[in-house]
């Protein structure tokens, strides 16, 4: 089963730029500008936090700062998958070591 799944994930990674086709954000995941437009103001809590935290991500919104959008998306998919895989092997390593 793992072989089929690896292939499945691999194909999805190749196709991942399809996820960029729509510019629209998810419902309830807007930039603070959206609130300004809709309400005339940005709720205080959202305004306070957005500038501080959001942009500090390494690959903000699955993009590589300065790089092409598609390249950034590919890099993000690979980094994410490798991190997740690495995490599980690490957990397993410690589980087995203790056993």
């Amino acid at each position: 089963m793992k072989r089929v799944l690896f292939i499945f994930v691999g194909i999805l990674i190749l196709l991942v730029p399809l996820g960029l086709l729509s510019e629209n954000p998810a419902w309830g995941e807007w930039d603070s500008e959206y609130f300004k437009e809709k309400l005339g103001f940005i709720p205080a809590g959202i305004e306070k936090v957005e500038s501080v935290l959001h942009l500090k991500a390494l690959l903000p919104d699955y993009s590589l700062p300065g790089a092409n959008e598609v390249v950034g998306y590919y890099v993000s998919a690979l980094v994410g998958v490798l991190l997740i895989g690495g995490f599980y092997y690490l957990i397993y390593f410690f589980v087995r070591k203790r056993a």
Binding site: K2, L5, L21, N24, P25, W27, Y62, G80, Y88, Y89
Partner: peptide
Amino acid sequence: LPIIAALSALSFVIMMFNIPVPGGTTA
């Protein structure tokens, strides 16, 4: 181990596929 890791990776990648939905949003 490899199956759970692959399914988690699948979860990560599938969330990158933003599907347009009527109403101007994606999910």
